[in-house]
Nucleic acid binder design. Structure first.
Lengths: 193, 193
DNA sequence: ACACCGATGTCAGTCCCTGTCATCGGCTAG
DNA sequence: CTAGCCGATGACAGGGACTGACATCGGTGT
């Protein structure tokens, strides 16, 4: 065994989740999180850039899933179709994880600082999606808009999933929201003729 | 004349803009902003909630414009059409303000914390839009999605406006991006048949 | 055996932000 | 005219997030 207990990072994540849930984000200090994890405050900041980041572990992996799904979409797929495949890939990850997702989201929604962090992660997803679409040859107003619209669909679907009674999966809400986006866009203005 | 120079708030905004531009956001302290404005640090925090908020003055007014434009849209307008009217109203505000907008945006884009604040303001716009759409009787998946998509259009149009050489106005980019959104949404999937 | 490495600890310091109380010019009631 | 209240600001103390610099010491490779 090493000089210290292994997996300090994991213990910090667990401690933070518990404390943020019990006392709320603002009323929890980093020192408390570190103490519960059995490390010092300085060690916390070696693993996570700031007090919020501890809640956003899987972000990079999620972003990779999105971009590789778009990159791997058949060449015949339209931009929005490729994006839809990416969203469904993400939807698959959350199958059966409703409870965990709800706990996390409740913490985030209860605090504006955490919402800000969530939003910039989502914006990062959109930017990465747009970049991958451009690599597929999608020109630029369309690439950025498809990516932003796709992330909008994901946000709405996610919120509806967490709000709804258990039973339906995130995937269902993603498909429903995607269809709704198409419907909404078709029912407006001269360009929809 | 009062006991102090009037318009402390305005002086703080100007001082912050200048300093953030000269040294960057991170390398500027609130104490420096306050000193340049001729007040104390404590007074800064009486006018602005935090170090970032000083850059986001007109937000509430902008949000009011968005929501009242949607509320005032003719009853015959579809959700996306009503949203389009709101976006055009915002576009009108920025007529001729390209230089100022560019300076501000350059500061914001250079710093992730400021981007986070910008994103949560945008999310606030989307939430307000969605609420007003619901008041118009738009049911919920559609209301949220239309609002999110509308704000996505605004983001993309804004970015393109600031990137493009002077001449075209924000309004032009909003109309262009809106048309592109419709086109993108139509060119995908079975629901578009 | 020895040197190096990497994760952690320790400590000091800066800056953001808040609570509390004091100050004092202007306004209003009488 | 004067007393008293009000609102904006100043002054001060303090907590908590975050950073830089250096020390510690098991594990690892030679």
């Amino acid at each position: 065994m090493g000089r210290w207990e292994p997996n300090a990072r994991g213990r910090l994540e667990q401690a933070a989740l518990d404390l943020y849930e019990e006392r709320g984000f603002e009323k929890t200090t980093v020192a408390e999180i570190a103490a519960r994890a059995g490390v010092t405050e300085r060690t916390y900041f070696r693993h996570f850039a700031d007090k919020r980041e501890v809640l956003f572990g899987g972000t990079a992996e999620l972003q990779d899933m999105l971009t590789s799904a778009v990159a791997d979409a058949p060449a015949s797929a339209t931009p929005l179709e490729a994006t839809a495949l990416a969203l469904e890939a993400v939807g698959g990850v959350f199958l059966g994880n409703l409870d965990r997702a709800r706990r996390r989201q409740a913490i985030i929604m209860a605090n504006p600082e955490l919402r800000e962090r969530e939003l910039i992660k989502m914006a990062g997803f959109a930017a990465a999606l747009a970049g991958t679409l451009r690599e597929r040859g999608v020109p630029d107003p369309a690439a950025a808009l498809t990516a932003e619209a796709g992330i909008a669909v994901l946000k709405v679907a996610f919120a509806r999933w967490l709000d709804a009674p258990a039973g339906k999966e995130l995937l269902d809400f993603i498909r429903e929201s995607l269809a709704e986006l198409r419907s909404v866009a078709r029912s407006a203005g001269p360009a929809a003729v």
